[in-house]
Design a protein around this nucleic acid. Structure first.
Length: 295
DNA sequence: AGCTACTCCTGGTAGC
DNA sequence: TGCTACCAGGAGTAGC
């Protein structure tokens, strides 16, 4: 799934092809991708506007629009599960899953494509409201071990759902949370307010290392979905320690990696490196078979 | 406050 | 080979 590193990769590759371009037309083939905006309203807002810059916040792609040099709102995209954003020549065969296409003044087309239709690509004049509450960027100066220690202590939540919560920390998804927790030696079910200071510092460092490493490798492409806008797969999947490795030996200790379900999310742990987790109430042992979790 | 369940979706695949 | 049932999951929402 596209998370911070994948979205960052997409923005970096798309940016030089769209910044400075003016939108000359739109095609919307699945209106729900607009997230409530009507097709005509989207067209009116976007056609004739110039894309002034492109950047990322959390897992959102943001494009500043201008008219006559003044801010005219923002294009905001979210890839969710299977979204892609590409720039193509207008005469190139369009993807059968295209949802929103913007014709540009250089004869190319910015296309938002999405097999599963969960993604969003729309226009807003209220960026803060569209993005919603977001925690700090993991690679920003705001994200310090001190901040993390205080923030973890202020909540009493299981680490995994907390780290997935975008209003707590921005940009992490299922893959990078599992990888960060493994590398920090922490169990996903551990309670946020019970970490000791050295554990917090290690978690902080590993989150940053995982995210920075994944950006360097242009994200992870373990299935057929995520590709860079150039069509290339990322390579961070080669670095996975636990994600999608259930049934395989831990790279550190050889113990079999297990899969459990935490907050309806597939979760991968090394029972030895990350411990067995806090004692949960009896009666609902998490499914953790090496093959199929069942349901 | 924090947890669970449900919704949106469809390609891939396990199991027959 | 072909069919069916189920699974993945980011984020929003509802209910306990």
């Amino acid at each position: 799934m596209p998370e911070l590193p994948e979205v960052e990769t997409v923005v970096r590759l798309v940016r030089p092809r769209v910044v400075g371009r003016t939108v000359t037309g739109v095609e919307v083939t699945w209106p729900r991708t607009l997230g409530g905006l009507t097709r005509p309203a989207f067209g009116r807002a976007v056609v004739g506007a110039r894309i002034a810059s492109a950047w990322r916040r959390a897992k959102y792609m943001v494009f500043d629009l201008e008219r006559g040099g003044a801010t005219a709102g923002w294009l905001v995209g979210h890839l969710r599960m299977t979204g892609r954003l590409v720039v193509q020549r207008a005469d190139e065969e369009p993807d059968e899953w295209r949802k929103v296409s913007l014709a540009l003044d250089d004869g190319r087309v910015l296309r938002f494509t999405d097999v599963r239709k969960f993604g969003r690509f729309t226009f807003t004049t209220d960026l803060a409201r569209t993005l919603g509450p977001l925690g700090p960027e993991p690679l920003s100066e705001d994200f310090t071990a001190e901040w993390l220690a205080a923030a973890l202590k202020a909540r009493r939540r299981m680490l995994k759902p907390l780290l997935l919560d975008q209003s707590f920390l921005a940009g992490l998804g299922n893959i990078y949370v599992d990888e960060s927790l493994f590398r920090a030696g922490l169990h996903p079910l551990a309670s946020s307010n019970r970490l000791r200071r050295p554990q917090v510092e290690r978690l902080h460092a590993e989150i940053r290392a995982v995210i920075a490493g994944a950006i360097e490798r242009e994200g992870s492409s373990f299935d057929t979905f995520y590709r860079t806008p150039e069509g290339q797969p990322g390579s961070y999947q080669d670095e996975f320690c636990v994600y999608a490795r259930d049934g395989l030996p831990c790279r550190t200790c050889g113990t079999t990696i297990r899969r459990l379900v935490v907050g309806q999310r597939g979760t991968h742990v090394c029972p030895r490196c990350q411990g067995r987790g806090p004692r949960r109430r009896a009666g609902k042992a998490p499914a953790a078979g090496a093959r199929r979790p069942g349901r």
